[in-house]
Amino acid sequence: MANFYETGPAKPVTESVRVDKVTPGARARHNIRAAAVILFAIIGLIPIFIMVVTAFKTRADVVAVPPKVLFQPTLEGFVFLLTERVVLPPAALAEKKQSLEQLDWMERVAMASGQTITGPSDYVRRLWNSVIIAGISTLISVFLGLLAAYAFSRFPIAGKDDLLFFILSTRMLPAVVVTIPLFLMYRQFGLHDTHLGMILLYTAFNLSLAVWLLKGFIDEIPKEYEEAALVDGYSRMQAFRKIVIPQAATGIAATTVFSVIFAWNEYAFALMLTSEEARTAPPSIATMLGRGGIEWSAIAAGSLGFLIPVVIVTFILRKYLLRGVTFGAIRQ
């Protein structure tokens, strides 16, 4: 600490400087604690690590007994996930091997197990459905949520607390309670197994979270900013657009992430309310179990591909994570 005034803090203070916490014993305890946390993290991440490893194994390696630790990595899982294939008879296979140079990498991977690609799998379409449904429903719910959150935060509303509780409570309903009537309703209006139906549903479910989360963030923007702008001749809408929205940017980002995660991972509704046209990826990963033996590497590849975007976003927004899981109930 001696040269603190000259150099400033060189690195963040990561340990306590309290008098009773700098003794060797306390230092040792600190290190043991850190080691325990890392150990916990490693144990917790073993399954994720195995998932990554499995995604790069061949079909034979996946079911090797005992499990193989060292293996030749392959993209077979990913190729199997994304394509439909047929097994080639040996003659045709040998013939095809001649023209190995002209094949693209996917074909070559498939050929390693004696198959040829006949087209993209259903999974590609379902993944695309997931992207559309999760994307659009997130955009709408964040937009509507922002409007409602602003109104709840700034204007007097009769029975505000009750309304807010009502909005939150819609998310606590078990999926199965609302699915049956929704199923009937959707069938009546022709929304069953449509993109629009799923988008509406996910929007409604994310909206409750969006309102709560964004209200928390907007509450923290001082009212005086807008009032100053109003005095300067902005209309209420201009003040909302040019002052509130930029100030709430992190809140909007965090809300977006949580909405995407929900819509991206959702399974129960998708299973019960879609069948073919609008089915999303999670229920279709599950049905992959059925066809021609279980393709574990494809399942692992699908899970991994599903996980990566979420993890990246989590890392970027980890500071705001807490608000999301508590519906904004906690100020940080």
Binding site: P47, I48, I261, Y267, A286, L289, T314
Partner: peptide, 15 residues
Amino acid sequence: ILIPMMLSPVVVGLF
């Protein structure tokens, strides 16, 4: 440590 809760539960179940 938080990664497991970001996964899709059905995918977790399958895996």
